[in-house]
Write a protein that binds this DNA or RNA. Structure first.
Length: 591
RNA sequence: GGAUCCGUAGCGAAAUUGGUUAUCGCGCCUCCCUGUCACGGAGGAGAUUGCCGGUUCGAGUCCGGUCGGGUCCGCCA
């Protein structure tokens, strides 16, 4: 070893020892007749000092610059009276350097690493990620992620789960996101796809009798990134169990999520049921009451249907919406009457982005009701609405009149934005909940009359085959559930459909022939014909959860080497062009 | 694909209504300094204001385009 100690471990008890430290020059304070260097490694800082009496090393010490890598050997001494640095753990001692070895030099950094300096822009930091990683905060996050993954692994191992790796070179799957394709050299014209999730493999493991599987699984999706969605690749704690019900999955997951929250955040878990379990919200209720299938339950702001009250009113926007089979929902926001005109305009844009046609409101000010719609509603109905919503002076009520889903989602977006504006998102809280009872089917967004899978075609319909035969497809619920944390989707899972007959029937309703199902999901269906156990599981997005637990503004901070917002690796300059020879071998022509 | 914000020395920022030589802090370089720890002092270098074009006597500032980046919608579990 080049060192006897790290830069974080020396203290008074080491006084008098001869030690060797290695690290980076973090800071240099040259006093002419004495030079102090703060030597840094990932464990901490130690002050080393040079004085001119040791002529042979003084010259070298004078040359040292920031981020040079050195090895210093010398005596640990107590600092003189009143010169200890209380800010660092090693502040009571320093090392009197007797031998100095310059292990490497450094150019002037493209941005500063010092504490108390503003962060440089992200593109620059990503290009020089290897420098940015030296910052204590990123060091901390790398370590945190390691411990976080260890915690999950331990938890599941202790409960009899087996970690199994599934293929990275897999097959394109017709459902879901865009695939990353990998051309096959041995099979010209054919392609592998990187897995969007190990979904089919883990189900096949269940058929293979594994019983309890998990994997910190890389997942690949070629979709545009978001603040909570890393481009291209991300990781799920993918898990699956045989012979379980939805309840069994919840029982396994909840204590793990609680443990992760307690160990890896400073947040207090709120919104638990009296029995200590996570709240469960049926999908339909979540959309109606919170306007989202991933509601943020750290704050109330509840939406109320007022369809019955306004269905025959004189305000055409409301009554027409109801006549067309739609609904009218209302959101009361306390203290919302203080919103400025511009803020309300912005909220209207927020609603419109979710396909609402506009955003009606009643603002209850001191001695005055400000609203563009009161003249149509009339005083009586206005009073009724205010009463129904229990609104007081200072509040504002927003309305959405549209088909059910648009009314829900647009008002949900407004709810979310109001919470931002009013500072209702309390980062000291962790509000977990399950969204359950997802619908199995909905009308296709592309062909309005066509029935399509709402979520995931592999879920078991509630009521099984009988439901599929007897019920209106739009009324069929699935054993499908999402786990939500502070308004972020933390996980998604299901009890799977393991029965070939139910599978074919489920696909038939969505318009797939037996042949099509065989062609697209052949391996899975074939497997189910050979004794598939009932099974289910879920797959928490571990990076996103840690991002929320750590209050980070970007999921990129969770990755050692993240892609930028356009999917590029600025450090490695990928994606990049390849040689003609490579393309030729793969039978690929670039247009 | 769409919306929106941003782009000024290596980094972070400033620059009234368009007006002289583009300012400040940090960093960098040289010199001085034996107890600092965001050391201090003196001096210095460093900019085609992302790029192209336009309006104007005059553009960092206004207009059009373009490139790059952030966030959001679409998309995505």
């Amino acid at each position: 070893m080049l060192r006897t100690h790290t830069c974080g471990e020396l203290n008074k008890s080491h006084t008098g020892q001869k030690v060797s430290l290695t690290g980076w020059v973090h800071h240099r304070r040259d006093h002419g007749g004495i030079i102090f260097i703060d030597l840094r490694d990932r464990y901490g800082l130690t002050q080393i000092k040079f004085d001119p009496s040791k002529k042979d090393i003084w010259e070298d010490a004078d040359k040292l610059r920031n981020e040079w890598v050195v090895r210093a050997t010398g005596l640990v001494v107590s600092r003189p009276e009143n010169t200890a640095n209380e800010k660092i753990g090693t502040g009571e001692i320093e090392v009197e350097v007797e031998e100095l070895e310059i292990l490497n030099k450094s150019k002037t950094l493209p941005f500063e690493l010092k504490e108390n300096t503003e962060e440089a822009n992200e593109a620059l930091r990503l290009k020089y990620r290897f420098i940015d990683l030296r910052r204590p905060e990123l060091q901390r996050l790398l370590k945190l992620k390691d411990e976080y993954m260890q915690c999950m692994r331990n938890y599941l191992h202790e409960r009899g789960f087996t970690e199994i790796q599934t293929p990275i070179l897999a097959n394109s799957s017709p459902e879901g996101a865009r695939d990353f394709l990998v051309p096959s050299r041995l099979h010209p014209g054919k392609f592998y796809a990187l897995p969007q999730a190990p979904q089919q493999f883990k189900q096949l493991l269940m058929v293979g009798g594994v019983d309890k599987y998990f994997q910190i699984a890389p997942c690949f999706r070629d979709e545009d990134p978001r603040m909570d969605r890393h481009y291209g690749e991300f990781y799920q704690l993918d898990m699956e169990m045989s012979f379980v019900t939805q309840e069994d999955v919840f029982e396994i997951m909840e204590p793990l999520m609680i443990e992760l929250t307690e160990k890896f955040s400073n947040k207090k878990i709120t919104n638990l049921e009296e029995n200590g379990r996570f709240k469960r919200l049926p999908w339909k209720e979540a959309l109606t009451r919170y306007g989202s299938d991933k509601p943020d339950l750290r704050f109330d702001l509840e939406i109320k249907p007022v369809t019955e009250l306004v269905k025959d009113c004189g305000f055409g926007v409301f009554s027409q919406a109801v006549q067309n089979g739609g609904v009218v929902h209302a959101l009361k926001v306390e203290k919302g009457s203080e919103f400025t005109r511009k803020e309300i305009d912005n909220l209207t844009e927020t609603a419109k982005a979710k396909e609402a046609k506009g955003l009606a409101y009643i603002s209850i000010k001191e001695n005055e009701i400000s609203s563009p719609i009161v003249k149509f509603l009339g005083d009586e109905l206005t009073a009724k609405l205010i009463k129904e919503l229990n609104a007081k002076t200072g509040d504002i009520i927003f309305f959405a009149a549209d088909e059910w889903k648009i009314a829900c989602l647009s008002l949900g977006a407004v709810r979310n934005e109001c919470a931002n504006m009013l500072g209702l998102k309390d980062n000291t809280k962790a509000a977990w909940c399950w969204i359950v009872d997802f619908p199995m089917y909905s009308y296709s967004e592309i062909e309005p009359e066509k029935i399509d899978f709402e979520h995931n075609p592999f879920s078991m319909p509630q009521g099984g085959l009988q439901s599929l035969i007897e019920k209106d497809p739009l009324d069929i619920l699935a054993f499908q559930y999402d786990l939500v944390l502070n308004g972020f989707e933390a996980s998604s899972g299901a009890i799977r459909n393991h029965d070939p007959e139910i599978m074919y029937k489920a696909f038939e309703i969505a318009g797939y022939s037996k042949e099509e199902v065989d062609a697209q999901f052949g391996a899975l269906i074939r497997a189910f014909e050979f004794g598939a156990p009932p099974h289910g599981g879920n797959a928490p997005g571990i990076d996103r959860i840690l991002m929320v637990l750590s209050d980070l503004d970007s999921i990129r901070d969770i990755y050692a080497f993240p892609k930028d917002g356009k999917g590029k690796d600025l450090m490695m300059d990928s994606p990049s062009e390849v040689t003609e020879k490579q393309l030729k071998e793969l039978n690929i022509k670039i247009k």
